[in-house]
Write a protein that binds this DNA or RNA. Structure first.
Lengths: 78, 78, 78, 78
DNA sequence: ACAGAAATAAAAATGC
DNA sequence: GCATTTTTATTTCTGT
């Protein structure tokens, strides 16, 4: 049994993922900040989160409708 | 250190959960059967599953709308 | 070219599957309830789940053993 | 009794959070893509994830160590 | 039977 | 500390 690892490629991958994790952290931190500011201005965070969630669910639903249509098309071979 | 376990209660709990697992298994098996029958009648299983999923998503959306309204009510103390 | 879809059959199928999904949901909700009650009585949910899993695995194992035994018996005409 | 809602402010908040959610989604999608590419090149995704996690933990640890050192230095006026 | 995708379950982390 | 959310792990399902 032998294992060959391309260390150059691996290093590249890990660096890229690490940078993406940084991006993610930044976005998450930003959101946290916004929610905190909102709260300190008297907004109810739980409600805000629910509003956001629903907005995005609505948008998803439209995309899902399209996807279903596409599935029909494929199933019917049209 | 001492651990006291009410074995009577525990046994009761485990039995109940075990029965619920049986129920679950039965439902899952029934679904599998229906999907297999559907397939053998020429229906596309993947499409069927997507239809079901969307139907239930639509219904969930309605419930979520109500929940959001309720959240607003609570947030406003109405 | 003409495409014929048996909507009656389809509707029937979807309704049946939808009802089965309801059943499934009910069972899952029941389990959740039981686990929550168990927790509030001081039981460790994680451990409970492991116990249930093991119980059911053991039972499956026994059934498989029996099935194998039966297969041998038939093969040998015993 | 009267209820006043600053809709302008609210709308602004929701828009901003929605955009941040988009950013988040993009980053997560990118990560998924990278992991999939890595997998198709023979890398083990689970292991990759562990490596990233460890790297970041180590870095956090170092930063915390530095912060603690700084705290001491300040306390001692060094 | 097996690879890849999807679903479910379990564990961990976060916020209140 | 409890509950919700997020992440990770395992299992299941489907098409080849």
């Amino acid at each position: 049994m032998s294992i060959v690892i391309e260390t150059g490629m691996l290093k590249q991958l890990v660096d890229k993922l690490d940078r993406l994790e940084d991006d993610k952290k930044n976005v998450l931190d930003d959101m946290k900040t916004v929610y905190n500011e909102a709260k300190s201005q008297g907004f109810d965070v739980k409600t805000l989160k629910k509003i956001i969630k629903m907005r995005r669910m609505d948008r998803n639903k439209l995309e899902e409708d399209d996807a279903l249509l596409e599935t029909y098309r494929n199933a019917l071979g049209v």
